[in-house]
């Protein structure tokens, strides 16, 4: 219980930081473009790779590889071309943050 509360409290702090920091809000908004397919809540196993919580550098490297045509893709190479390098970096950083756990009363 204490562990859960601490985690929740931490995530609240993270939320607070977001609200204060425009770059973090931008990153959050851009990363929300990805989550219909790459939701942190997506069931496992899943044909679409889970990216939430992976290291930011790894995510960014992959996004860039899609753009350079170095990684095979069906759709990702078309999508990443809609974003600047800086935006891809923001997205990678945001997706790397562990998903925010909500208080769950199930």
């Amino acid at each position: 219980m204490t562990g859960k509360l601490t985690l929740a409290a931490l995530s609240l702090l993270a939320g607070t930081a977001h609200a204060a920091d425009p770059a973090a809000v931008d990153a959050r908004n851009l990363a929300a473009n990805c989550t219909p397919c790459h939701s942190a809540d997506a069931p496992e196993p899943n044909a679409i790779p889970r990216i939430a919580g992976l290291p930011a550098a790894k995510i960014l490297h992959r996004l860039q590889a899609f753009r350079n045509g170095e990684a095979p893709a069906t759709v990702m190479h078309q999508i990443v071309r809609g974003y600047s390098d800086q935006e891809l970096a923001l997205i990678a950083n945001h997706l790397a943050i562990p998903a925010m756990p909500a208080s769950d009363k199930r």
Partner: peptide, 8 residues
């Protein structure tokens, strides 16, 4: 997978 994931 899209259909399941967007629902999640």
């Amino acid at each position: 997978a899209w259909a399941r994931n967007i629902r999640a």
